[in-house]
């Protein structure tokens, strides 16, 4: 008894520094952001400082760019989730069958995940999507079609494509692992029960994957809500606000418009929105995690 109490006390004492540092690490930026969000603090107007009340929030939330950024964030997140989950399941099923050269194929499939977002986006922008010397343009010309200026004509779609390409390996890997953990005898039992390929997928495989799909969605959402580098190096949020998401809008306010107060208010709004989405998602799919 005494021993466990002592161990517990010692454990707490040993943990304290880490917890304190983590707490400071988190709380200082948060408090500063909150503080700035209620201040008049524009680098272009250094004379105008002081308490601003809710004006920063008012400006941010009524800015038409905010609505577009909000919509873009949702479209981007949901599209990438859909592409990666569906594509991940298909690729996972394929790789699960694949026997010859499996190791190599798997490394190839996972490799995009190890490429930095900036590099990946630049490769897509310059080597693939460039209308003059990109590979897509070359394919289009060799087929006798007009090359497409992807990032100008379909900017948000292009960004979705790039981000989905980066996250597909992650989804594939998680889902493949889940597929491989499906009991072989269960599949055989379903086969003896008369389930064909489609029924097997719908009634056995998909329910088995539910938990893995939930994990993929939750983890990806955290990152997809704050996609930034891909937008910065390809479209710069444009044309207009066509590819500006909330993360990019905040950056835009702070470092292009030099409005620290407004950007801080945007940051606080983003945090709140992210939490709402998170709560919503956990409600929606989180029940799969119980069981």
């Amino acid at each position: 008894m005494a021993a466990t109490v002592n161990t517990r006390r010692l454990a707490r004492a040993m943990l304290t520094p880490a917890v304190v540092i983590l707490f400071i690490w988190m709380i200082v930026p948060l408090v500063l952001t909150l503080w700035y969000s209620f201040q008049n603090y524009s680098l272009l107007n250094p004379a105008n400082v002081g308490f601003a009340g809710w004006t920063n929030y008012q400006y941010f939330l009524t800015d038409p760019a905010f609505f577009q950024a909000f919509a873009n964030t949702l479209i981007l997140t949901l599209s990438v989730l859909a592409i990666t989950v569906i594509g991940g399941i298909l690729l996972g099923l394929l790789l699960d069958q694949f026997i010859y050269g499996q190791g190599i194929v798997r490394i190839l499939v996972i490799s995009p995940f190890f490429i930095m977002p900036t590099v990946a986006a630049l490769v897509w922008k310059n080597m693939l999507m460039n209308p003059n010397y990109g590979i897509f343009a070359w394919i289009a010309t060799s087929l006798g079609m007009q090359p497409v200026a992807w990032l100008e004509t379909y900017p948000l779609f292009s960004i979705i494509l790039i981000v989905a390409w980066q996250w597909l390996p992650f989804a594939t890997l998680i889902l493949l692992t889940a597929l491989q953990s499906l009991d072989e005898e269960q599949k055989e039992a379903a086969g003896m029960d008369g389930a064909g390929f489609a029924s097997l997928f719908v009634y056995i495989t998909l329910p088995h994957l539910a938990r893995a799909i939930t994990v993929v969605i939750l983890i990806e959402t955290i990152f997809l809500l704050s996609v930034f580098a891909e937008i910065l190096v390809t479209t710069g949020g444009g044309p207009g606000y066509a590819t500006t998401n909330i993360a990019y809008l905040i950056y835009h306010l702070a470092l292009l418009d030099y409005d620290v107060g407004g950007a801080s208010a945007g940051g606080v709004v983003a945090v709140i929105l992210a939490n709402i989405v998170a709560i919503f998602l956990v409600r929606l799919v989180g029940k799969n995690l119980e069981a």
Partner: peptide
């Protein structure tokens, strides 16, 4: 012929029940 066309049914050592289906669903699946 594939298993389902042979008209036999099998009880596996691991039972191989479908974990996400109720007992009703398991028995009625075939």
């Amino acid at each position: 012929l594939p298993p389902m066309k042979r008209g036999l049914s099998m009880v596996f050592q691991s039972y191989a029940l479908y974990p996400h289906m109720s007992v009703r669903g398991n028995i009625g699946f075939g």
